[in-house]
Design a protein around this nucleic acid. Structure first.
Lengths: 221, 221
DNA sequence: TGTATCTTGTGAAAACTTTCACGTGAAAGT
DNA sequence: ACTTTCACGTGAAAGTTTTCACAAGATACA
């Protein structure tokens, strides 16, 4: 299973979402085409993506929805719970800490931290905002493996260093900075400004953008 | 300026951020290498990205920070203000509506909408949550061009249809669904769950992931 | 059993993106 | 003026990802 591209992994996530939806509706099987249409890609892409991990379908029939779902969950590591902490209790941090879809997927937000005395002690549902000073102890006690970093740009790197020192294995970074983390620590960035800017670009330069616009199925019927 | 890839546009955004930072620190010029190191890419990539749009540097010297910044802003359409509305006044919608970096870049959030009577009428800073029923009128009056869609998955498509009917030109979608929009309407998706899932994948399959991990400069010194 | 139909899995081709490497122009110092 | 150094801009090469197209397994039905 060497060398799976980032884009493939992102698409697997989407397949999981689609399959969950199909399962909820009682779908038994689905073809690569059916999956592709719902996920916004092509049937060949679906088959190629899956082929990196094995062989899941039946020729002439398609894929069993529950079986493929189970396999994909195992591949993505969604067949277990992950201990997650949010650092930065601003509006974004708050929204993320209480984002219901995370919990649904096994991303279990077990702590929220801030360094602002005004915020420390606030209660959100069953979460209490803790002092960043307590990071090491709480991380150990609650088995935090993934951090969602939602601080401002200034403090992001220093917080990253701290949580890495606490043994965190991956960071999802919302701060608009390029974080430096040691090899072996996973890092993904979510940047909302570039997303808007790329829309602004598309609106400003319509010639340069015949791409990723429409919505219809990517393949001929 | 044909066929500029999405990745190039995203990197241009990053270059703008880096250049703003350099300008603030009083930097006069920067080399492709200097820009690359700060943006987390390579000097060749920087030069190639810029080459799609023209020739901005001086050989042997590098790029003038203020001039390149000005050019890139014009290319990305950041030399003007954009009328933005947020639809969906949940926690995510609220965080986005008041996200200070949007305003800084000329993305001017002029309205927030929801369909929940509980939320309609709430005031956040100088924004009031409005009834989605008033979309058409408010969009016209406040010249909304871009919508940030932060509703639940169920209502996302129907809201998208409405705002497209109101003449919106681009949508930044935070709902976990593949939206169908007519050709000519820009669409970008921000999916937070797949970001976490790709970290979960990396932690679960260390063999498959020797990629995008570290932090050090991509080029030899 | 045989035929028709369906849809996977996969090499090979095409398309796209990144990296290399070098000619060229510009500045600085002697 | 001459030499050295620097760093851009850019075709060509390398690498990566997506699409194509088809052999082969599976089912259905006469």
């Amino acid at each position: 299973m060497r060398n799976v591209s980032q884009s493939t992994v992102r698409r697997l996530s989407v397949y999981v979402r689609v399959l969950e939806d199909l399962e909820r509706r009682g779908g038994e099987t689905v073809s690569s085409r059916g999956l592709a249409d719902r996920a916004g890609t092509t049937s060949a892409q679906v088959r190629k993506d899956l082929s990196y991990f094995g062989s899941f379908g039946k020729r002439g029939l398609g894929y069993s929805v529950p079986e493929l779902l189970k396999s994909l969950r195992a591949i993505l590591g969604l067949d277990r719970a992950w201990g997650v902490a949010v650092v930065g209790a601003g509006r974004i941090g708050q929204a993320l800490a209480r984002y219901p879809d995370f919990a649904d997927k096994g991303f279990d937000v077990r702590a929220v931290f801030d360094n602002d005395p005004q915020k420390i002690g606030q209660r959100w549902d069953d979460l209490e905002v803790l002092d960043v000073g307590d990071l090491p102890q709480v991380f150990r006690e609650r088995q935090i493996e993934i951090v969602i970093l939602a601080t401002g740009a200034e403090s992001a790197q220093s917080v990253a260093n701290q949580v890495v020192a606490c043994g965190v294995r991956a960071i999802l970074n919302f701060a608009p900075v390029k974080l430096q983390v040691p090899a072996g620590v996973g890092l993904n960035n979510v940047n909302m400004v570039p997303e808007l800017e790329s829309l602004s670009f598309a609106l400003t330069n319509p010639q340069a953008t015949a791409r990723g616009v429409s919505g219809a199925s990517q393949e001929p019927s």
